[in-house]
Design a binder for these strands. Sequence first.
DNA 1: GACTATTTGTACGTATGTATC
DNA 2: CGATACATACGTACAAATAGT
Lengths: 88, 88
Amino acid sequence: MDADAVIDYDSLTPVYAQLAAILRARIDRGDWAAGRRILSESQLVQAYGLARGTVRKAIAALVEDGVLVAVPGRGTFVALAEDNDPAE
Amino acid sequence: MDADAVIDYDSLTPVYAQLAAILRARIDRGDWAAGRRILSESQLVQAYGLARGTVRKAIAALVEDGVLVAVPGRGTFVALAEDNDPAE
DNA sequence: GACTATTTGTACGTATGTATC
DNA sequence: CGATACATACGTACAAATAGT
């Protein structure tokens, strides 16, 4: 996945999945280290021009994969375990 | 969980979680056998007086747990495997 | 093949609640 | 107290898949 920072609405891949891939790439390339807080939902909404629901869906997918950890009232953080669960 | 068929908006448990518990109970008691199609999202909306997003969230939780399987254009079905993944 | 109806999937918008800072 | 941030719940609209006419 090379299309960082750009959402392609004509793509077969859902927007939220594209954003999830973008965020995962940014984490992999070191934009945010483990344990660091990433952009807030509002900031992601503005940065990529998406609806909040779409941003939340992307974050939820990464939380599901153990890449991110969401903490109510604090923000969303990069998970500490680098190697995630290969199950599924 | 005994409060079948009734959503309690004053409960600490989120509405979508209550609906998920209700549906799981209905499956356990045999309202729908394995491989059978359950109510459509629209029917669940009408039956329980909820928004579609809430219904979808409840279904998503059960799909996550391997209890249900959603098929685009056809409906949502009771999964074949009775004993689900106890992980998590 | 065309058309319609049904059903799930995706996307967006808004409001409220609660916890944190 | 106010601002920020995540969680939940409501609503709308359109797209895609499926089935039947």
